[in-house]
């Protein structure tokens, strides 16, 4: 019974790692376990065998998703939603609100999307600067050289924005960054 429970908790831990703590996948497994616990079985072994059957199914499906890169596409579609929200909020601020808020939002969206692409491709970019991340992505062929060159001036703009150097850039530069980021997210997510 201990071994079965170890496998059960191991599966929960893997699901947490992949889908997050409150994911529907975990809820489903907990539900299966509760259902099995509520039914009378001849023995603990019979109950464990029933639970293991479900666990084997869940793990087989997980293996299939990993092998077919489906997890990455789930991750990508979630990321896209987040970035799209950021971009549209930034655009709202651009047309009727505060240029400072707008610029911070769009710079964060672009930098974060670069980090996410690196992360999805297995690059460790913790504590790396935006320029370093762009170089890493370029050298691995994850982004094209011409895109990397387009990103260079935006790295300088990002530094101005995040150093609250409000006087050193104008609205049109931020407008151009918004348009670029929108296309970039569309192409990479």
């Amino acid at each position: 019974h201990d071994e079965s429970m170890e496998i059960y908790y191991g599966t929960i831990s893997v699901l947490e790692n992949i889908y997050g703590k409150n994911s529907s996948h975990i809820k489903e497994l907990l539900l299966i376990n509760n259902k099995i616990l509520s039914i009378k079985y001849k023995s603990i072994e019979a109950r464990d065998a029933q639970l293991l059957t479900s666990i084997i199914g869940i793990l087989s499906n997980l293996k299939y998703e990993i092998e077919n890169d489906l997890l990455v596409s789930i991750e990508k579609s979630i990321s896209k939603e987040i970035f799209t929200d950021f971009i549209s909020f930034s655009k709202e601020q651009y047309s009727s609100g505060d240029l400072k808020i707008c610029s911070v939002l769009i710079c964060a969206a672009l930098e974060d999307s670069l980090k996410k692409i690196a992360d999805i491709n297995g690059l460790n970019v913790t504590k790396k600067s935006m320029a370093e991340i762009i170089n890493a992505l370029k050298s691995k062929g994850i982004i094209q050289k011409n895109i990397a060159s387009l990103l260079e001036p935006y790295t300088r703009l990002r530094n101005k924005v995040f150093h609250a150097d409000w006087e050193s850039f104008d609205k049109s530069e931020i407008g151009s960054l918004i348009a670029f980021t929108e296309e970039f997210v569309k192409d990479h997510f």
């Binding site: 496998i7 191991g10 599966t11 893997v14 019979a46």
Partner: peptide, 20 residues
Amino acid sequence: SIKKRVVHLQENAKAQFEKL
């Protein structure tokens, strides 16, 4: 990697199921 963990768990689950 996560795939290794999944495969390992799956094998353990199958072996344990056979035992029961």
